[in-house]
């Protein structure tokens, strides 16, 4: 059976998609999350281009959902506003249609399962491949359901599924997640929803060390609780990179999207 992994705009394959290329680079990675359709409905492409030009290594594009269970107030509010602005799955795909003409860094879509399920998982994955999306993060798609029902589809369209681990995840489960992960593991820094932490304490340092000592084959990128240079540096001491979401959304809601590079400079300085 011919594999459909070659995407239209480049020669990367599933065996080595943009995420896998990126994690081979000898540097700590900065990934930024934003909610599509926020602050303005048409900001999506500008935000992505701005982020790449500012030196960001990877972007998570949030597909807004009415009931984002794992998110704190900042991302909830941005999702509600994005939906009010009229964001839909189809519109987001339309906005991203030509994104690979201007953007080279890995792009990951992050969304809750219901809108993807309604779109049709196969159709969703196919459109992602056509656009040049590299991976998906679907927090409420359980691992067993993914493995039994959707793994083949994701792989068929060259998409990497990113799994989460938390301080409460058992070693055994982490080993399993490591064995089925192809890109990176999304390491949730603490028992919390997004945007609820400021700074890392002793418990987190022990957790970072514990995971580091497990010597997993899959690199980890830390998310939740990273908002500035200090927390970025702490998070990436053991891990390959870090993800900033709520702090970035707060920045663009206050300062607008034209000052994105100022925000990124402060993180990476």
């Amino acid at each position: 059976m011919p594999r459909r992994f070659a995407s239209r705009n480049d020669n990367y394959t599933f065996i080595m998609n943009r995420i896998q290329e990126k994690i081979k680079e000898d540097k700590k990675l900065l990934s930024i999350y934003f909610t599509a359709g926020y602050p303005k409905i048409d900001d999506t492409v500008s935000i992505i281009q701005n982020l790449e030009q500012s030196g960001v290594d990877m972007i998570e594009i949030g597909l807004p959902f009415s009931d984002p269970l794992a998110d704190g107030p900042t991302i909830q509010a941005s999702s509600t506003q994005a939906l009010k602005n009229g964001m839909t799955t189809e519109l987001l795909f339309e906005q991203l249609k030509n994104i690979r003409q201007s953007v080279r860094i890995p792009l990951v879509l992050m969304g809750y399962f219901n809108p993807i399920f309604q779109y049709g998982v196969d159709a969703f994955c196919q459109t992602c491949q056509d656009i040049g999306i590299d991976g998906l993060i679907i927090p409420d798609l359980p691992i067993d359901v993914y493995e039994e029902q959707y793994k083949a589809t994701f792989e068929n369209y060259g998409l990497i599924n990113v799994f989460l681990i938390t301080p409460q995840t058992s070693d055994e489960r982490i080993r399993h997640i490591d064995s089925i992960s192809k890109g990176f593991i999304y390491m949730v820094s603490s028992a919390s929803v997004t945007g609820s932490q400021s700074g890392f304490g002793e418990a987190q340092r022990r957790y970072f060390k514990r995971i580091s000592d497990m010597q997993l084959k899959t690199p980890q990128i830390v998310g939740f609780g990273i908002s500035n240079n200090e927390t970025f540096t702490q998070a990436t001491q053991h891990a390959k990179g870090a993800i900033i979401g709520s702090a970035f959304i707060k920045h663009i809601s206050k300062k607008g999207i034209n000052t994105i590079s100022d925000f990124i400079k402060l993180i990476l300085n």
């Binding site: 269970l69 794992a70 399962f113 927090p139 409420d140 798609l141 359980p142 359901v145 799994f163 989460l164 681990i165 938390t166 409460q168 995840t169 058992s170 489960r173 949730v188 028992a191 919390s192 929803v193």
Partner: peptide
């Protein structure tokens, strides 16, 4: 049915 929950709720 099933349990469509984020990893944070799994334990």
């Amino acid at each position: 049915g099933g349990a469509y929950i984020p990893e944070m709720l799994y334990p």
